[in-house]
Amino acid sequence: MTLEFKGIHHVSALTAKGQENYDFYTKVLGLRLIKKTVNQDDPSVYHLFYGDEKGNPGTELTFFEIPRAGRFHAGTNSISATSLRVPNDEALQYWRERFDTMQVEHEEIRERAGRSTLAFQDHEGQRLILVSDEHNQGVPGGTVWDKSPVPAAYGIIGLGPVQLTVQHAQATIDVLTDIMGFRVAGQYASSVAGQPDIVVLETGQGGTGAEVHVEERADLPAERPGRGSVHHVAFRVDNEEELRQWIGRISEARLPNSGFVDRFYFRSLYFREPNGILFELATDGPGFDTDEDIHHLGESLALPPFLEDRREQIEAVLKPIDTKVE
């Protein structure tokens, strides 16, 4: 059986203020908070998951809240931009006007990899790009939550291409193609004069929901992570059986890795590619309605079973986040 990822599963980033993060991603971007839980490796901090109507794989943008995190300093060996898919080119016009009205810092609409895009930043400098799905023939998007403040015709329907900025592009490309089964799908000019073209790689059905864009920048220092930076990107694995096959392949390639990790909502494997960027492989299920009713996702603190007996002490150190839907 040929092993192949189904696309991007989720992207996890860092924030210093959970409440402000919730307000931006739900009230400005119109995403649904699908899970309010904790970092399973450090239960003293929140892990917030946003996505479509039920947090389908490929729509999840997540944040670890690190209250004392300093501001990141952009550079190489980083996930330097996360794309969010919108239905068509017309939606970008809506978002440009919305960002102007809501005073969100943004660039102008321009083409990237043959698609119309609109780059912007959140209140902590998180680098985001809206990408039009108008001509997408690849992985289908999700479904906008019916309580979103953004009209469904313009709403965010999932994660788009993830950009990696590295010092040595070929080393990253080799791992993506030779070990992880990605295909080189093209390239496009860097926005920085004199820099190499950005290489587009795809997996599965391809398209906006299944691409990694690799940018080589030998002129930059390594990124210093902090609030506003991205922690890791995860790729979609169909089920646990396939995940265990991937664990074998990654181990055979002698890439140090975490081995099998049960995250309750999905099963995972973690490893770093040659430039030090953290990759995760995550199964599509069991899903976020495993411990909450689908109609009430994210309304209260959810804990995996192995942390439930520590609920009282965990809740005691977390600053409450008001997640009432108006």
Score class of each variant (00 low, 15 high):
Leu61Gln: 05
Pro57Asn: 13
His106Asp: 07
Glu105His: 01
His47Ser: 11
Asn136Asp: 15
Trp95Ala: 05
Leu128Gly: 02
Lys36Asn: 13
Ile129Met: 15
Asp89Lys: 04
Asn88Leu: 02
Gly138Glu: 10
Asn136Ser: 14
Gly58Asn: 06
Gly51Met: 07
Gly51Ile: 05
Lys27Ala: 08
Val38Asp: 00
Lys54Asn: 12
Gly70Ser: 12
Pro67Trp: 11
Asp41Leu: 08
Phe99His: 10
Met102Ile: 03
Phe63Trp: 04
Met102Thr: 09
Ala69His: 00
Gln137Met: 11
Asp41Gln: 11
Val86Pro: 03
Glu108Ser: 12
Asn136Met: 09
Arg71Ile: 12
Phe63Asp: 11
Arg85Glu: 02
Arg127Ser: 08
Leu61Tyr: 08
His123Met: 13
Asn56Tyr: 06
Leu118Cys: 07
Arg96Ser: 14
Leu33Val: 05
Gly30Pro: 00
Ile79Arg: 02
Gly125Ser: 05
Lys27Met: 02
Phe49Met: 10
Gln103Cys: 09
Gly125Gln: 04
Asn39Lys: 06
Thr76Arg: 10
Thr62Ser: 12
Glu134Ala: 13
Ala91Val: 03
Asn88Lys: 00
Ala119Pro: 01
Glu105Thr: 09
Leu31Asn: 09
Ala113Met: 04
Val104Gln: 06
Leu48Tyr: 03
Gln40Asn: 12
Val28Ile: 15
Met102Arg: 15
Asp122Arg: 05
Glu108Gly: 07
His123Phe: 15
Asp23Tyr: 00
Pro43Thr: 14
Asp23Cys: 01
Glu90Arg: 13
Thr82Val: 15
Gly51Gln: 07
Ile129Pro: 00
Gln137Glu: 13
Arg96His: 14
Asn56Glu: 15
Arg71Trp: 06
His106Leu: 03
Trp95Met: 04
Tyr46Phe: 12
Arg110Ile: 10
Lys54Glu: 14
Phe49Asn: 09
Val28Trp: 00
